[in-house]
Amino acid sequence: MRYEEFTIEGRNAVIEAYRAGRPIDKLFILDGCQDGPILTIKREAKAKQTPVKFVTKERLDQLSETGKHQGVIANAAAYEYATVEEILDNARQKGEAPFLFLLDNIEDPHNLGAIIRTANLAGAHGVIVPKNRAAGLTAVVAKTSAGALNFTPVARVTNLAKTIEELKKEGIWFVCADMGGTTMYDLNLKGPIGLVIGNEGEGVGRLVKEKCDMIASIPMKGDIDSLNASVAAGVLAYEIVRQRLG
């Protein structure tokens, strides 16, 4: 398995990538550029809801590996994204109650890779991430996941709060990590469950937190006030595993 990050440069190459259905994580376009091919790329980006950054020529030159970017560079996913339905099918095929990880504002690719690794080892059926303000499936994520990306599907959704609402109709309960919550040992985390993790700075966003059925805190005895996001995900995931085995 190769882990290079896919950078697509040049107008025709980017247009072809979109038309081939290639998942694009982010698009960098020369600010002020309005010619035909660029307008075509902007239309494709809007249709696929790709985050677009308008940047200077100097910034594009820095990002470019070929020196032939023609005013546009795309970051493509190193791995294909799954759908939420495929993740639920994964649980059905195994005859298990769904166990999902949902990640809000996890922008560090090392954290994302480590969480995907934990999700795999804890027996989760998949990971769901939002399209914006989130790391994509880059080479760094693939390497940090230590191969877990080959086995644990990752779905990318436009709206995490709406996805939680839809998954509740499937009978899934949602627990989010927050220091102000109930101690995780006092919660019933059995059955179909979605574990929602935010970044260590801001935590889980308000709109997403409001959709959760339970808020879990991890007992902490030390002098600092938060765990790294991937460590928090691991601690909570294994409390879920313990209860599922019980």
Score class of each variant (00 low, 15 high):
Gly123Thr: 13
Val204Gln: 01
Ser230Phe: 03
Cys176Trp: 00
Glu210Thr: 08
Ala177Phe: 04
Arg2Gln: 14
Ala76Leu: 04
Val52Trp: 07
Ala232Asn: 03
Arg22Leu: 15
Ser217Val: 02
Gln93Glu: 14
Ala119Thr: 10
Gly95Met: 08
Asp61Arg: 08
Val14Ala: 07
Asn199Phe: 00
Lys131Gly: 01
Lys48Glu: 08
Gly147Leu: 12
Asn90Glu: 14
Lys221Tyr: 12
Phe174Thr: 05
Ala119Glu: 11
Asn12Trp: 02
Ile106Gly: 01
Gln70Cys: 02
Asp89Ile: 07
Asn12Arg: 15
Gly222Met: 11
Gln49His: 12
Gly234Asn: 06
Leu112Asp: 02
Ala82Arg: 13
Asn120Arg: 15
Ala161His: 11
Tyr3Phe: 11
Gly201Phe: 02
Tyr238Ile: 05
Phe28Ile: 02
Val157Glu: 08
Asn188Ser: 10
Ala177Ser: 11
Glu107Gly: 00
Leu60Gln: 00
Tyr79Gly: 03
Leu121Asp: 08
Thr144Glu: 14
Val55Asn: 05
Ile197Cys: 00
Leu167Gly: 10
Asn150Trp: 06
Arg244Phe: 01
Phe28Pro: 05
Glu200Met: 07
Asp25Pro: 00
Lys162Cys: 04
Ile116Lys: 09
Leu195Gln: 03
Ile128Asn: 06
Leu195Thr: 05
Lys68Pro: 00
Lys94Asp: 12
Lys26Asp: 01
Glu210Lys: 15
Leu112Phe: 01
His110Asp: 07
Glu165Phe: 04
Ala114Phe: 04
Ala124Phe: 15
Asn132Leu: 12
Val127Ala: 03
Lys57Gly: 04
Thr7His: 05
Ile73Thr: 09
Glu9Met: 05
Gly198Ser: 04
Thr144Gly: 02
Glu85Ser: 12
Gly32Thr: 09
Ala146Gln: 13
Leu103Val: 02
Val14Ile: 10
Thr40Cys: 03
Gly32Val: 07
Pro192Arg: 15
Cys33Phe: 12
Lys168Leu: 08
Ile8Asn: 05
Leu88Phe: 04
Lys57Gln: 12
Met220Asn: 04
Val129Trp: 03
Arg92Tyr: 07
Thr66Asn: 06
Gly32Met: 14
Ile128Gln: 02
Arg242Asp: 06
Glu210Ile: 03
Asp89Arg: 15
Val204Cys: 08
Pro192Gln: 10
Lys46Gly: 09
Ile8Arg: 09
Asn132Met: 10
Val241Arg: 09
Thr138Asn: 01
Gly71Met: 11
Met220Arg: 14
Arg22Val: 13
Leu207Cys: 08
Ile106Val: 01
Arg19Gln: 15
Gln34Ile: 09
Val141Gln: 03
His125Leu: 11
Ser230Val: 00
